[in-house]
Design a binder for these strands. Structure first.
Length: 287
DNA sequence: AACATTTTCAACCGCAGGAGT
DNA sequence: GACTCCTGCGGTTGAAAATGT
């Protein structure tokens, strides 16, 4: 019997026992306990030894995308969204590479975000998401909105450092070089660019506040902070927003967001509502 | 309330590359 | 060099949840 035939026989034998589909709580517990005692890696061995009727690949995926303790839950923050836009511009669909710079976020999550949110916007505008046109839309409208959102949230947060503290980040000429953002002056309370954009877009829907539980990754105790306070807390802890002009990109600080305490996310609101798109199409029709 | 449609995201698949034999 | 096994990546799928009618 050829090796290929043998392999197919084995696959058939295995597939009769292999479980597929959503993981049960019992399976999760089994996997978590096994890894706690034996560590991760060697997934095929793990799958056999742990008693799970799953493939090694499936175990690995479940652990990395869901069970691993440092996985963040909840929607992506504006800062994270901004970083994804920038890194995707730089590297394309290199999801795992992009994920390296967003601690606690998985490549799968980022990929899903891109497909469901970013590509959806492109579809609605009838633009190819990989086109220069769409990049221009992102650069001119989406990114400034995110920046505005970040600043806005900061201004409404009494515990956050002053707005000027965003300066070193957003004034960084290398920041968002790929997106061409360095021609947008974000250092003032409202740049000319933002003023123009806000003429086109109703930003009122972005008025939000939110609380998350920050589990200080450097030993500080849990505390409730505003989303942006969390961000600035991260900044204070030396993880300055990445410099895009070169390859010395530093990951965002790993801030653990405890699931149970996640009350409301600033990113719940749509990035663009249909009014925005309508406004945009009015001024820059692509169809 | 009931049904239809859309959106989200966990999980799967195939493929590629590296390590070991 | 050829082969197998393992791991990781990116694309895709489909069930569940959310939203609309």
């Amino acid at each position: 019997m050829s090796n290929i035939m043998k392999k197919r026989c084995n696959e058939n034998e295995e597939s009769t026992e292999q479980r597929k589909g959503p993981w049960t709580l019992e399976e999760d517990t089994l996997l978590t306990n096994y890894i706690a005692h034996n560590g991760e890696g060697r997934w095929n061995l793990l799958a056999k030894s742990s008693g799970l009727k799953r493939k090694g690949k499936s175990c690995r995926l479940r652990w990395l995308n869901y069970l691993k303790p440092d996985i963040k839950r909840g929607n992506l923050t504006p800062q994270e969204q901004l970083l994804i836009l920038e890194l995707h511009c730089k590297w394309g669909n290199r999801w795992s590479k992009i994920a390296q710079y967003l601690p606690g976020r998985t490549d799968n999550e980022i990929k899903n975000y891109w497909r469901t949110r970013v590509q959806k916007q492109a579809r609605q505008l009838n633009i190819d998401s990989s086109s220069h046109q769409f990049l221009e839309v992102v650069r001119s409208f989406w990114v400034p909105r995110l920046i505005h959102k970040i600043k806005d949230n900061t201004n409404t947060n009494t515990r956050a450092p002053p707005t000027d503290s965003l300066g070193p980040v957003l004034q960084d000429n290398n920041f968002s070089h790929n997106l061409g953002l360095n021609n947008i002056d974000c250092s003032t309370s409202m740049s000319q660019d933002l003023a123009k954009i806000s003429q086109l877009m109703d930003l009122s829907d972005l008025e939000t506040t939110s609380s998350v539980c920050l589990e200080g990754s450097r030993g500080s105790s849990n505390q409730y902070v505003n989303e942006d306070s969390r961000y600035f807390h991260c900044l204070e802890e030396e993880y300055i927003f990445p410099t895009m002009g070169n390859s010395d990109i530093l990951p965002l600080q790993d801030c653990h967001v405890a699931d149970s305490t996640y009350e409301e996310d600033v990113t719940q609101d749509p990035m663009w509502n249909m009014d925005d798109i309508w406004h945009f199409e009015e001024y820059a029709p692509f169809n």
